[in-house]
Design a protein around this nucleic acid. Structure first.
Length: 470
RNA sequence: GGCGGGGUAGCCAAGUGGUAAGGCAGGGCUCUGCAAAAGCUCUAUCGCCGGUUCGAUUCCGGCCCUCGCCUCCA
C-alpha cells in the first residue's frame, strides 16, 4: 500500500510519487494567510488540513520541505494602512503575530520556510521580466503589467486546468462591462500594479515604474525560489483553485523555467470550506468565529483541531458548538485511555504495536481518509479499555500500545498530557481518603465539592484515588 | 447558465455488489458509599423514481434538494 491523493488537476485520486528519484524528498507549498485581519476558523481549517498533510508525510517517512507564505501586500491591506495612517509593516505585523499564535494553539507544526511577499519583490520582478521577454505579459496604458491569457495559450499552454471555465459565457458577464480595466482581455490578470495616490507609501521601484505586485505573483516567485521550479504539492482552500492557483500555473509555466516535460506543480490539493451551524459564516448571522472566540467559550486548541480534522478535507464541514462539545468528550476518552496505559506500562519501553498503526496507515493512505482513521483509533481505544478493565493488559502490551498511540499522535496532534494537580489539592485528596476510611462520607463529599470549585475532581480507581481536571 | 462537491440513525461522519465503521447525544445494565471512568447493551428499509443483477445503499438513467466556485475570499 502507498499513499494516494486527490489531484485537482486530474480530478482523480492518484498514487503519490514525488519528483525526487529516490522518492524521499517532497516539496510542499501551502498558500498562507493574507494578513489584513484576524484569521477566522474557516481559514484555520485549511491550515490545519495542510498541517495534517505535512505531518502525515513526515509519518510516512518523507523528507518534507514545507513552505507557507505570508501575503503582506494586497489591496485590502493597502486600503487599511491608508485608513489607519500606519505603515505596512506595522499593520501586518499585528495580524501575522496573531496568526502564528493561533497556529500554535491549534498545534500545527511550523513550516520550514515562511516567506513574506514584501521580502521577495525582486524575485517577482524577475519573474515578470521573464514573462515580458517571452511576450506573454504586456504593459497597459495605465503602466500596469498584465498577463495575457491569449499569448500564453498561443505558446501551446493550457489555461483553465484546475477549474473548467467557459470563457464565452464569462465574456457575456455583467462584470466585464462594469470594469474599468485597461487590460487587453478580461481574463488577463495583473502582475504589477502601477502606483496610484491611494497607495500612499506602499510601492516599490520596478523596470515599469513604481508600483506593487499583483495578487498571484508572490506565490509563484516564492514557491519556485524555495522549492525549485517544479515541486510536488501545492495546497490551499478550494476557493483559491480559481483564479489564484490557475494564475500561478500560468505565470510559472509561462515563464518557461521548468525542465522539459515537468509541470510547475505535480499534485494540487484543495481543502473544502467550513460552514458554521449549517450556514456560511457571516457577522450578521452571529456565527462568525475567530479562534479567540472559541477559546473564550472555554474550548482549547486541541479540541478545535480534533473537530476540524474529524471529517475529510475535501468535503464541506459543518462546524457547530455541539460538535465541539463532542470533540471534547471524544478526546477525553482517548486521553483517559492513554493515561491508564501509561500507568500500566510504567517505565517499560518497547516497539509500537503494529496492528493499530497498520490500520491507521491504510486509512490515511487512501487520500487522507481521516474519518476512517478516527474509527481505527476509537476501535483501538475500546480494545485497550476492555483489556484494562479485565486486567489482561500487561506492562509490555501497554507500553507497545502507548508507543503506537504516540506515533499516531505525531499525525493527529491532539493528545494532551494530564495536568499535575497542585500539592495542596493532593493533600485534600488524602484527607478525603481518610474520611472515607472513617466512613465520614459527608466530609468526603465536602472535599469533593471543594475540589470541584477549584476545577478538579477525584476519581476512585483500582489503583486508588486520583485527581483529574474537570 | 457553466463547472464541481454533497444528500447514510437526533447530530457529525466512514464504507461496501450480498441487508451499514466510528464519534457525540439519549435509554437500560454492571461496577461504585456517592460519583467518575470503563465495560456490556438498545436506537438506520443509506433523498425520490426507474433499470441492470439471484441480490444495490453501493453500478446505470432520470428527478428533487443542498452547498461551493465562475476573477475580494481558506
Amino acid at each position: 500500500m502507498a499513499l494516494s491523493l486527490h489531484n485537482t488537476i486530474s480530478r482523480k485520486v492518484e498514487p503519490f510519487i514525488p519528483f525526487d528519484p529516490t522518492g524521499k524528498k517532497v516539496g510542499m507549498y501551502c498558500c498562507g494567510p493574507t494578513v489584513y485581519d484576524f484569521a477566522h476558523i474557516g481559514n484555520f481549517r485549511t491550515f490545519v488540513f495542510a498541517d495534517l498533510v505535512r505531518r502525515y508525510l513526515d509519518f510516512r517517512g518523507y523528507e518534507v520541505t514545507h513552505v507557507m507564505n505570508i501575503t503582506d501586500v494586497e489591496d485590502k491591506i493597502i486600503q487599511r494602512v491608508a485608513e489607519q495612517k500606519t505603515t505596512l509593516g506595522e499593520y501586518t505585523a499585528r495580524y501575522q503575530d496573531a496568526f502564528f499564535e493561533d497556529l500554535k494553539i491549534l498545534n500545527c507544526v511550523d513550516p520550514h520556510h515562511i516567506p513574506k511577499a514584501t521580502d521577495h519583490i525582486p524575485e517577482m520582478i524577475d519573474l515578470i521580466s521573464k514573462l515580458m521577454e517571452r511576450g506573454i505579459a504586456y504593459q497597459a496604458p495605465d503602466k500596469s503589467i498584465y498577463f495575457s491569457i491569449e499569448k500564453y495559450q498561443g505558446c501551446g499552454c493550457q489555461y483553465g486546468r484546475l477549474v473548467k471555465l467557459n470563457f464565452e459565457e464569462m465574456r457575456q458577464g455583467k462584470r466585464v462591462s462594469d470594469d474599468e480595466y485597461e487590460k487587453e482581455s478580461v481574463a488577463d490578470f495583473a502582475l504589477w500594479k502601477t502606483r496610484v495616490n491611494e497607495d500612499g507609501e506602499v510601492y516599490w521601484p520596478s523596470p515599469w515604474g513604481e508600483g506593487r505586485p499583483g495578487w498571484h505573483i508572490e506565490c509563484s516567485a516564492m514557491s519556485m525560489k524555495i522549492l525549485g521550479t517544479s515541486f510536488d504539492l501545492h495546497l490551499g482552500g478550494e476557493d483559491l483553485a480559481f483564479p489564484h492557483h490557475e494564475d500561478e500555473i500560468a505565470q510559472s509555466e509561462g515563464a518557461n523555467v521548468q525542465e522539459e516535460g515537468k509541470p510547475f506543480v505535480k499534485y494540487w490539493l484543495h481543502g473544502a470550506h467550513l460552514l458554521v451551524e449549517g450556514k456560511k459564516m457571516s457577522k450578521s448571522l452571529g456565527n462568525f468565529y475567530t479562534l479567540r472566540d472559541l477559546l473564550d467559550k472555554g474550548y482549547n486548541g486541541h479540541e478545535i483541531r480534533q473537530l476540524m480534522i474529524s471529517a475529510h478535507y475535501r468535503e464541506t464541514f459543518n462546524f457547530t458548538l455541539d460538535g465541539l462539545a463532542g470533540a471534547r468528550t471524544a478526546l477525553n476518552r482517548i486521553n483517559e485511555c492513554v493515561t491508564k496505559l501509561r500507568g500500566v506500562a510504567a517505565n517499560t519501553q518497547t516497539d509500537p504495536a503494529t496492528e493499530v498503526i497498520t490500520k491507521f496507515t491504510t486509512a490515511l493512505d487512501d487520500n487522507l481518509n481521516v474519518s476512517s482513521a478516527w474509527g481505527v483509533v476509537f476501535d483501538w481505544v475500546r480494545d485497550c479499555n476492555r483489556k484494562l478493565a479485565d486486567n489482561s493488559m500487561d506492562a509490555e502490551t501497554a507500553a507497545a500500545e502507548l508507543a503506537a498511540w504516540e506515533l499516531i499522535d505525531t499525525v493527529l496532534g491532539v493528545s494532551v498530557d494530564q495536568e499535575e494537580a497542585p500539592a495542596e489539592l493532593a493533600e485534600l485528596m488524602k484527607e478525603r481518603t481518610q474520611a472515607r476510611e472513617a466512613k465520614d462520607f459527608s466530609r468526603a463529599d465536602a472535599i469533593r465539592d471543594e475540589l470541584a470549585s477549584k476545577g478538579w475532581t477525584i476519581e476512585d480507581t483500582a489503583e486508588g484515588p486520583r485527581l483529574k481536571r474537570l
